[in-house]
Design a protein around this nucleic acid. Structure first.
Length: 225
DNA sequence: AAGCGACACAACCGCCAGGCA
DNA sequence: GTGCCTGGCGGTTGTGTCGCT
């Protein structure tokens, strides 16, 4: 039986009060981040360390950018999700001031729906067979407040019209979109590849773990820098 | 104005990997 | 080598808000 991360009987749960926020901010300003387990007691908070960490990272950190996502941020999230799947921390790492939780929430509440409405399966970024009727009504590139800003969608759609096996990710590979991303990500080389192919293999356990564990049909991606 | 459902987002939970004794 | 502790991550839930009927 796993031990709880803290003594739950003595901890508050639910929304944070302003006083709790201030205590946490003051403590971290003075002592810095880290030692989350001992932080609550040291800071005089009746919270578990995990809760403090989440609150700080997702809400209180001074460099957090709050508010609506810009269109280029949306595009980037979609592109990165096509590449990485649900690796929210990695995706958030490419979006300054955004947290993984925020990106995840935004994906689930906005972008998923948006992709579905455009006839794209948000799980694998493949074009669905049957586009929603309203999507067809809008026609290509004329829809919504964002208009035709998402080139990825348009590329994917137009390719899908001609080639049923194409998807958003392959669209990425075939286009210059990858270059635009300037991704500082390196993904484990498939066993059939060697450094002779000009690839550099870096140790990035997160990415490796994510790709190995992923069950989505995300295509193998080879990123060149 | 009240009721209800949809939506947005904060927070929690459980699991995993890495570090350390 | 092994087990424990901690931090980090992704999935899920809870709750407040908004809009529609």
């Amino acid at each position: 039986m796993r031990k709880p991360c803290c003594d739950k009987q003595d901890t508050n749960k639910g929304a944070w009060s302003k006083q709790e926020d201030q205590k946490l901010i003051d403590y971290i300003r003075t002592h810095g981040e880290g030692c989350w387990r001992s932080l609550p007691q040291a800071a005089g908070l009746l919270r578990c360390g995990k809760s403090c960490r989440l609150r700080w990272i997702n809400y209180l950190r001074p460099d957090i950018k709050r508010g609506n996502f810009a269109e280029d941020e949306e595009d980037l999230i979609i592109k990165l999700h096509a590449l990485l799947g649900n690796r929210w921390s990695l995706i958030a790492g490419r979006l300054p001031g955004r947290t993984d939780n925020e990106v995840k929430n935004y994906w689930n509440s906005h972008l998923r729906r948006k992709l579905i409405s455009m006839g794209i399966d948000p799980n694998n970024h493949r074009l669905s067979r049957n586009l929603p009727s309203h999507q067809q009504k809008h026609g290509s590139g004329s829809s919504t407040s964002s208009g035709s800003k998402c080139q990825l969608f348009e590329q994917a759609k137009s390719q899908g019209d001609n080639d049923q096996t194409s998807d958003a990710a392959s669209c990425l590979e075939n286009s210059s979109a990858l270059l635009d991303l300037n991704l500082d990500l390196t993904i484990t080389i498939p066993s059939s590849f060697t450094p002779a192919h000009g690839m550099q293999q870096h140790e990035n356990s997160n990415i490796r773990r994510g790709l190995e564990n992923t069950t989505s049909p995300t295509p193998t991606l080879l990123l060149f820098r």
